[in-house]
Structures are given as structure tokens and as C-alpha cells.
């Protein structure tokens, strides 16, 4: 199953895409993804229910979060209500160690995203802060990153033996599906996604040339 693991909708402050239009775009352009994960900035969107839309378009639509730490931005998959009470998702200075510890305690999976970018990516902070404990997966293909930024991410993942995921980091409709992640099995819920990431049977994909 192929999912775009990093997208933003109008729920994010800089998102300009409406979720129904993402669905319509995926089908109209016959993109090879079977669903996507909405990773809204600094929050978990409890309010939106996309289940009817998912059924209508035959897509899997899941929710996660993108939070901000001293090592840059981090996607958190498998967010639960209790996890959102464990730390302040809106805080832009979260300690990565806390995000990792609390995520694992609550069954979620933290994944530093666009790690090759300056400031908001993990690689830029390793010299000053050291290699963080507990990172197992990073985003090696990010649709919004420049080529050399993904190369930095891939090199860091190789060096540290991290697994890699892919996500488009779409903020507008036409950017969805630029990067994605292939899972060996089916993923139908936030919990199953976290489980699949922990299991390690996945592969990052980039479709940017075709997009």
C-alpha cells in the first residue's frame, strides 16, 4: 500500500489545500498513491472527520501531526488524545527527547522530517547538539525539499542506520503525491500506521519527476 505520509490542509496556517480537492486530484491525475496522512502544523486535528470522503474516493485518509523541536520539525504518527496532553503540540521549542519519549510511551512514532533542510531539519543540528537518542526513522524524500537537501537526509540516514519514509509536504492540491511511502501490508487506521512504521516493512518513494 502506498501512502503520502506528509500533507497539510487549510487547517495548517500555511496550508491552502482543501481535503476533498486532494482526493479529486489524486483520482483525476491517477496518482499511484492509495491515500495520504494529514500532518497539520503544531496541532492534532481532532475536529475533522474524513471517513465519508475516504469512502467516496476509495482512499485512506489518516491524521498525524508535525511538531517543532530543537532538532527541527518532527512528524508524529499514531497520535492519541493522551499524547496531546503529554506535551504542548503548539510549542515551537519542544525537546526532541521529550517528543520521542512521550510518543513511544503512547504508542506513537516520531519521524524527523525534511532532515536535510537548514534549521528546520535534524542534520543541521547534529554538529551542535550531537546525534539524538531514539530516532529510528527519518523522512528521506520530502516533496518540498531541494535536491541537495534530500541527499543530506539520505546520507544521514545511511550513516545512522535510520529507516526512511517519503512524503510530499504538500500545502497546495497539486503538490500531493510528489513523494510517498510503500508499505508491505494494508494500513487502514492511525494505529495501524504506527504499527507498520514500527514493523519496518516500508520503503520511501519519490515521484517528483513524473509530478
Amino acid at each position: 500500500m502506498i501512502l503520502d505520509l506528509h500533507t497539510h490542509s487549510v487547517v495548517s496556517d500555511d496550508g491552502r489545500a482543501k481535503v476533498p480537492n486532494y482526493c479529486q486530484w489524486i483520482r483525476a491525475r491517477e496518482l499511484p498513491i492509495e491515500g495520504f496522512v494529514l500532518t497539520e502544523h503544531r496541532q492534532f486535528d481532532f475536529a475533522s472527520d474524513y471517513s465519508a470522503l475516504a469512502r467516496q474516493f476509495g482512499l485512506t485518509i489518516l491524521k498525524a501531526s508535525e511538531v517543532e523541536t530543537e532538532y527541527g520539525h518532527v512528524l508524529v504518527f499514531g497520535v492519541t488524545e493522551t499524547l496531546t496532553q503529554a506535551f504542548d503540540f503548539a510549542d515551537i521549542h519542544l525537546p526532541l527527547a521529550q517528543v520521542i519519549e512521550e510518543s513511544e510511551r503512547h504508542g506513537a512514532v516520531p519521524v524527523p522530517c525534511h532532515p536535510g533542510r537548514k534549521r528546520v531539519g535534524m542534520a543541521a543540528h547534529i554538529d551542535a547538539l550531537g546525534v539524538p537518542e531514539g530516532v529510528r526513522i527519518v523522512e528521506v524524500f520530502n516533496g518540498g525539499s531541494r535536491g541537495e537537501e534530500d541527499r543530506i537526509a539520505a546520507a544521514m540516514a545511511d550513516e545512522q542506520n535510520y529507516r526512511g519514509i517519503g512524503g510530499s509536504d504538500a500545502h497546495i492540491v497539486s503538490h500531493i503525491g510528489r513523494c510517498a511511502t510503500r508499505f508491505d501490508g494494508a494500513v487502514g487506521s492511525e494505529g495501524e500506521l504506527a504499527e507498520a512504521l514500527r514493523g519496518g516493512d516500508f520503503e520511501a518513494l519519490s515521484y517528483r519527476e513524473q509530478a
Binding site: 496556517d13 517543532e68 520539525h73 515551537i92 537548514k118 534549521r119 528546520v120
Partner: peptide, 13 residues
Amino acid sequence: IYTKTGRSGRMVF
């Protein structure tokens, strides 16, 4: 008025 971090560090909007 809000804050966030970007490629260039912390920002106030």
C-alpha cells in the same frame, strides 16, 4: 499574530 520556525530559524508573523 503568531510564531513558528522556518528554514531560517524562529519567526514571528
